[in-house]
Design a protein around this nucleic acid. Structure first.
Lengths: 230, 230
DNA sequence: CCTACCGATCGGTAGG
DNA sequence: CCTACCGATCGGTAGG
């Protein structure tokens, strides 16, 4: 919530708690561990989980990709499932940050020009940010969350679900406004699911080496789903 | 190649057709084998692959679910991958049949009333049929195809892809007509991907025990994607 | 289709 | 974080 600090630290999901334990606390590891190895594990795991799936990826694969020996991932994570959960939580934290930043930036831009954002403009910002999270740089984390759901324990599923609810909550008033004005039709709950389906499916087919850009995808969603194209 | 002998050799992939080969013909195994056990394996595999994923499902799980011993699935299928490919091909064959039947029935109904189907009506029939295939009875096969793609060999992927292309080909002229009349906007290729995304995602969240029916979903798609709701 | 079995791999751990 | 290792499971096969 604080506006002043924008400094990023490369570890999000489970910060080594210096004073306050947030979530389930993690043991402070050897002094020289600055969290980089953990980050490397997370990135390697995200990439491999996405490419091959959770079950088809061995912890040995991940260790090798992170330049470690086979047993070393278990120094950073309790087990393989916890590694998967951390990938998802990291992805959702990042998505939430990016979403908030995109909205804040758009609101500021509009204010600088002396007007406020319309529901349609909000919608465009959210859609564009979603594609960025889904298909932009470092975009393995969210697809893993979308498609490796099954492999989480029920408790982990609950935690990730809470983050996902936070993410979707930002959309709700925007979709409600669009529905009220008639720009978005159909039962709002179903409309939200269909909309996310249309966007999320792109993680399965989108090839950045091909022609369409993220702006193209964004425009397409607006054209398809809104009755009055802005 | 000889027709008279139907004595089994435990390899299936290349069938000895008795008279008429339907689809890809399948060799008759031990006299008493009428194909039911193979079907039971396919159904059990489809269900388990969908629930747990391909890699998390052991061939022993499948054998047990089909009432067999652990080694017996390999009497019917060369290996686990071939079982997965067969699930997907079976699912796509069935989807193609159901799609064709739905279209034929709708065309016949319209003709009986002395008119032809509009693009919008064709669209509704296709969408409804797709939801039936995706969420109706025996609906494990297509979700497995959608979400276990990675585990196929390249050759198997090619075969399944051909069936998928056949399935999508039916949609193309309909979408083209809707685009020409302005009822469907946006670049047609992207529009198709988004549309399938919106529909296919339902396999991840739809709960038949809840309120929405397949007709509700169909109506929602039409309302969301078409500019003029019929 | 069953029985009995094999080689390989995997998640995870003890001990440093 | 590495070394060395274990128990369990898994896909698959021979032989009937």
């Amino acid at each position: 919530m604080s506006i002043a600090t924008d400094l990023s630290e490369p570890s999000q999901a489970e910060p080594a708690p210096l004073r306050r334990a947030r979530g389930r606390p993690r043991k402070a590891v050897h002094e020289r561990d600055d969290g980089n190895r953990r980050q490397e594990l997370l990135r390697a795991a995200a990439r491999l989980f996405r490419q091959q799936g959770f079950d088809a990826t061995s912890t040995r694969d991940i260790a090798t990709a992170a330049g470690m020996q086979s047993g070393s991932p278990f120094y950073h994570f309790e087990n393989k499932e916890a590694l998967l959960a951390a990938v998802m939580q990291e992805g959702m934290q990042s998505a939430l940050h990016r979403q908030a930043a995109a909205m804040a930036s758009a609101v500021a831009d509009a204010a600088a020009q002396g007007h406020t954002l319309s529901a349609c403009e909000c919608f465009r910002v959210l859609v564009r940010s979603h594609f960025e999270v889904l298909l932009g740089p470092d975009s393995d984390f969210i697809p893993v969350m979308l498609y490796e759901w099954r492999s989480l324990s029920p408790e982990q599923r609950g935690e990730v679900n809470r983050l996902k609810d936070d993410y979707e909550a930002v959309w709700v008033p925007v979709l409600k406004a669009l529905h009220a004005s008639g720009e978005l039709q159909g039962e709002p709950g179903l409309a939200r699911m269909m909309l996310f389906g249309a966007m999320n499916w792109s993680a399965q087919w989108y090839d950045p080496a091909r022609e369409a850009t993220l702006d193209d995808l964004t425009r397409s969603v607006l054209q398809l789903f809104l009755k009055t194209t802005a």
